[in-house]
Amino acid sequence: MAKFDIRHTAKLANLGLSSEEEEKISRELEEILSYVNKLNEVDPDLIGVEPTSHITGLENVTRPDETSPSLTQTEVLQNSKNTHNGMFKVPAILEDL
């Protein structure tokens, strides 16, 4: 098995990990990954098997195009630490571009 690329994965997951965390999580995940590799033994049983992503058998669950009440602006913003003029405020984004 290829070595787990912790930095790349952490970047995808948007997690800032300390070097201790990197070390600990790498170790634990490698152990878990080698455990889950036991599923490779099931391979012969999987030929022609469809994946299950929904267990209910439901299909076409939709809603009509009707409006319902929204939250108030106060409710929308009530849990944010940083708001301005009825909007959420974040550090300037364009500089990243």
Binding site: T62, R63, P64, D65, S70, L71, Q73, N85, G86, M87
Partner: peptide
Amino acid sequence: EPNTHVCPVCLGLPGALPVPNRQAI
């Protein structure tokens, strides 16, 4: 007015779930 056409679903609040609009489909 900003943030007045917003609910738990389109604000991504914990626990909110999407139900698709059949007209749009």
